[in-house]
Design a binder for these strands. Structure first.
Lengths: 137, 137
DNA sequence: GTCCTTGCAAATGCTTTGCACGCTG
DNA sequence: CAGCGTGCAAAGCATTTGCAAGGAC
């Protein structure tokens, strides 16, 4: 498991059942889980886990680069496992659905803007909001 | 003033000195002000204005499409006056500077993704984080 | 055995809301 | 002069933190 290897490599960090659980939930999460939802799912497997543990686990994963945080809408944050650096979001205003997409052009924007501004890009986030097919665009 | 016209056109909304002040601050703000900073600046002109009034004014402006909200980093929201739909942000991890940029390619991404997914885009937000020239890329 | 991690509860900080008064249109 | 907007204070909610007990290595 990637988590295990990464945690073990990182000095001063330990693998625990809670972290494995939280990471598993985020990985399977199919995308864009809020902390509250991660917590709710975690409690189904381990009713004694606490919300602070969830937050601290997420914090550790972000620090290790395993999980990315996105800021969809004004509500709370969402988290997802990092697979590659180029995943972005369509958020439906009608039904709240979050659709993930990849697009190579995005990387080009990122590169060219970076070059023009002397700016070294570490991460990119792009959110388009609007209406999905069901909600009639 | 655009604010005045828009407010007056909108039924059930009134123009007040506080709203004019808040809108002026956001417009001149040179970009990316948090609610707290808008509040601080507003108090210099009108020490009796309250933070809730600032939030309510911003809420009204968002509703009228005069102001856009962006979600930079995990901290609080930032606001800026809407001039066109294609302004995006570089956020420096080192010094916290926010650099605004426009890029036509972005619109293309937006259009093509929208077409491919049957998704009608209403607004787009893109944040690149990394290091600016000063903070050494 | 060390010291990182957990659970609980309390604290924090941004944002929102209830209510009585004030001011716009 | 009706009804929206304001100011104040208190509430709400996601997230963070302190501390003692538990568990990984």
């Amino acid at each position: 498991m990637k988590l295990n290897k990464t945690i073990l490599k990182s000095p001063g960090s330990r693998m625990t059942s809670q972290r494995a659980l939280v990471f598993d939930i985020i990985s399977r999460g199919g995308g864009h889980l809020g902390a509250d939802e991660i917590y709710a799912r975690a409690r189904r497997k381990n009713p004694r886990i606490s919300l602070s543990t969830v937050y601290r686990a997420i914090g550790k994963f972000k620090e290790l680069g395993l999980v990315a945080e996105s800021h969809l809408g004004q509500e709370h944050h969402h988290y997802e496992a990092v697979h590659n650096g180029n995943h972005f979001h369509l958020v439906c205003i009608g039904c709240g659905a979050v659709i993930e997409f990849e697009y190579p052009l995005v990387k080009r924007v990122q590169d060219e803007v970076a070059r023009a501004g002397g700016f070294k890009v570490v991460s990119a986030e792009m959110n388009l909001s609007g209406y999905c097919r069901q909600c009639g665009g």
